[in-house]
Design a protein around this nucleic acid. Structure first.
Lengths: 152, 152
DNA sequence: GAAATGCCGACAGAATCGGTCGTATACTGA
DNA sequence: TCAGTATACGACCGATTCTGTCGGCATTTC
């Protein structure tokens, strides 16, 4: 399928929302959840995850909430996905801990690992700021573009 | 997460195997399954799927089996994944049939849709032939490389 | 001290995925 | 013609993962 989980979507949406409201000191999980119609408790856990990974700063107590730990330009979509869904690999048998058992099967995986890197590169090149800026599809014809080379 | 299903992996492996054995007229599902230790019946269904999508030709009866419907260069990884896993979208709320119901939420999705296109482009640029050639990591330093531009 | 908020673990329902089984159909070759 | 091999297809089940909820606790502000 190759798709993000809803959690990752929610996380990106929440960060975008925070990036769009820089004037406020902090926004509570409920604020963001209400803004998008996301289950509040679920979003809360997602925000906590991102806090743990250093993407957000949290503040308990009344008028508490979350704020971006860094400038929106310094947070990439890759980091968000990594924080929420964990490390991803395009191949099922991730060549990490426990490689593929099937005898010589994973010859496929070596080229696909490079695809994986390419995708990661694309996601790393996208910042929360980029997401927030594209509110209106009008300014789509901007010049900024990342170039990604895939070497087979 | 962002990973392929095992079925897609199996499908790619099977096509690679077929591409590596061009001399044989046809290989049965069992042949391929045995070669890689894949459950035979599962692989059979995958091969049938790819046949239905025009990637393979099938031949029933004794000495039957499957053969590539086109040259290995003309079959992209994208087509394989599409045939097996169906159309994929990186975003949960695919902007196809039933768009996101959440009020204004899917502002995120528009930039991610472009990421999606980029990934699709990468996968389209990879042929079964490419997979088959990379049997040995020795000839990795080949010159052929696809260039993918992501315009934010 | 009370209210609001974040923090955390456990858990349940739903969806998806991986894999199996059974049966029907098609082709080959003796 | 008949047996054997192979594809074709649908139903099903167990396991895993994902989504979302609940309950309790900690922290800060007022």
């Amino acid at each position: 399928m190759l798709k993000l989980t809803k959690k990752a979507d929610y996380g990106l949406m929440a960060l975008k929302y925070l990036a769009e409201h820089p004037e406020t000191v902090a926004l509570s999980a409920k604020d963001v959840a209400d803004a998008y119609g996301i289950p509040a408790q679920l979003l809360a856990k997602i925000l906590q995850l991102m806090t743990k990974h250093g993407l957000l700063r949290s503040h308990a107590g009344m008028n508490g909430g979350y704020s971006l730990a860094r400038d929106a330009r310094q947070i990439s979509a890759y980091e968000v996905i990594l924080a929420i869904d964990g490390p991803f690999f395009i191949t099922s048998c991730t060549k990490g801990t426990k490689s593929c058992e099937l005898t010589p099967s994973c010859t496929i995986k070596e080229p696909l690992a490079r695809v994986n890197d390419t995708i990661a590169g694309v996601l790393k090149s996208i910042s929360i700021q980029d997401l927030a800026e594209h509110e209106q599809p009008a300014n789509r014809a901007r010049e900024g573009h990342g170039l990604v080379a895939l070497t087979l």
